[in-house]
Amino acid sequence: MFGLNRAEVIGRLGADATVNHLTNGGRVANMSIATDESYIDRNSGNKEDRTEWHRVVTFQPGLIDMLEKHARKGRLVYVSGTLQTRRWRKNGEESDRFSTEIRLAPGGRVQFLDKPNGANGSAAAQGTTEAPAATQDTVDSDIPF
């Protein structure tokens, strides 16, 4: 059996990354990334803009540390990971809820495409972290700002 599960997104962070502590002692980081698309409406002929929101999640400790420091609302970011759909049910509800997210596991990647203050950065000023190499020491040395 063969398959490919890869998702790549470039967009702006809708909020600062959030980090939560799990009951098992681990942590999870979540981000929400907005991508914009323009198209011409067939009926009216007008240009329309549409924003799509993408949820991103990681359990990688070094990547979480980096996101805590640098993932701020409005930053332009590239992420590459896999799609994962979770199912859960809230207490008192009869139907399941679903959420599809981009999961940054080993092999996933986060790259900031601008400088932290929001100014456009050159390629030399970009910070890149791949999930498998994401430890505190390597994350700090990979990000030049």
Rank of each mutant, 00 (worst) to 15 (best):
M1W: 12
L4N: 13
N5E: 12
A7Q: 12
A7G: 09
E8A: 15
V9A: 10
V9Q: 04
V9I: 14
I10E: 09
I10R: 11
G11E: 03
G11R: 01
G11N: 05
R12K: 14
R12C: 07
R12P: 04
L13W: 01
L13P: 00
D16G: 03
A17K: 00
T18E: 15
H21N: 14
L22M: 15
N24V: 06
G25K: 00
G25Y: 05
G26P: 05
G26I: 00
V28G: 06
V28W: 04
A29R: 03
M31G: 07
I33E: 02
I33L: 00
I33V: 03
I33D: 02
A34D: 06
A34R: 02
D36G: 15
D36E: 15
I40G: 06
D41N: 10
R42N: 11
R42C: 04
N43P: 06
N43I: 10
S44M: 01
G45C: 02
G45E: 05
K47G: 02
K47P: 02
K47I: 10
E48F: 09
E48I: 11
D49P: 00
W53H: 00
W53Y: 01
H54S: 03
H54C: 03
V56D: 01
V56A: 00
V57D: 01
T58A: 02
F59K: 00
Q60P: 07
I64G: 05
L67M: 08
L67Y: 06
L67R: 06
E68F: 07
K69M: 11
K69Q: 11
R72N: 08
K73P: 04
G74E: 03
G74Y: 03
R75I: 06
V77F: 05
Y78V: 01
Y78P: 00
V79R: 03
S80P: 04
T82V: 13
T82R: 15
T82L: 15
Q84M: 10
Q84H: 13
R86G: 13
R87T: 14
W88V: 08
R89D: 05
K90L: 13
N91V: 14
E93Y: 02
E93A: 02
D96E: 10
D96G: 07
D96M: 09
R97K: 10
S99Q: 09
T100R: 07
T100E: 08
I102C: 05
I102E: 01
R103A: 15
L104A: 00
L104H: 01
P106I: 08
P106C: 08
G107L: 07
Q111L: 11
F112V: 13
D114F: 07
K115I: 04
P116G: 03
P116L: 02
G118W: 03
G118Q: 04
A119R: 13
N120V: 12
G121M: 01
A123F: 11
A123Y: 08
A123I: 12
A125F: 04
Q126F: 10
Q126W: 05
Q126Y: 12
G127A: 08
T128L: 13
T128I: 10
T128E: 07
T128G: 05
T128C: 08
T129Y: 11
E130D: 12
A131N: 00
A131H: 04
P132T: 12
A133M: 15
A134L: 07
A134M: 05
Q136G: 14
Q136C: 14
Q136P: 13
Q136S: 15
D137K: 12
D137M: 14
V139P: 00
D140C: 10
D140L: 13
D140F: 09
D142F: 12
I143R: 07
P144V: 05
F145Q: 11
